[in-house]
């Protein structure tokens, strides 16, 4: 399988240095080749398991975090908010 490594990198928000593209491409193709060993299988697959129903949470308020704590790890903050480069969309 030929992998479009640049497309996959873009989707993953990664950029790959030019000198590494070939290496990643080759490695990915080998890994994908290993993954392709899986045989097609019959039978339906649904990702639900009603035998293990999820316990739901009661709608009770719990304390939120203090803003200083919430933002203590943020690389850049201003006016109580996290700062990112200007978003146009």
């Amino acid at each position: 399988m030929q992998i479009d490594i640049q497309h996959i990198a873009k989707l993953s928000r990664l950029s790959i240095e030019n000198e590494k593209v070939e290496k990643f491409q080759k490695e990915m193709e080998n890994i994908v080749a290993m993954c392709e060993k899986l045989p097609p299988m019959d039978g339906d697959y649904t990702a639900v398991d009603p035998s293990k129903p999820m316990r739901l949470r009661r709608d009770d308020v719990r304390p939120s975090l203090k803003r200083e704590q919430l933002l203590q790890n943020a690389p850049q903050t201003q006016a109580g908010c996290v700062v990112v480069p200007k978003v146009v969309e």
Binding site: I3, I5, I8, A9, L11, S12, R13, L14, S15, I16, K20, F24, E27, M28, I31, V32, C35, V84, P85, K86, V87
Partner: peptide, 28 residues
């Protein structure tokens, strides 16, 4: 810009093995 920040941060912040797995996962 924003996309550039994402890509630079993730490319510099993650090692090669993590990148390989992220890309494999994105692909599948």
């Amino acid at each position: 810009n924003l996309t550039d920040m994402y890509e630079k941060t993730r490319s510099e912040g993650f090692g090669d093995e993590v990148k390989r797995r992220i890309m494999l996962g994105t692909f599948v």
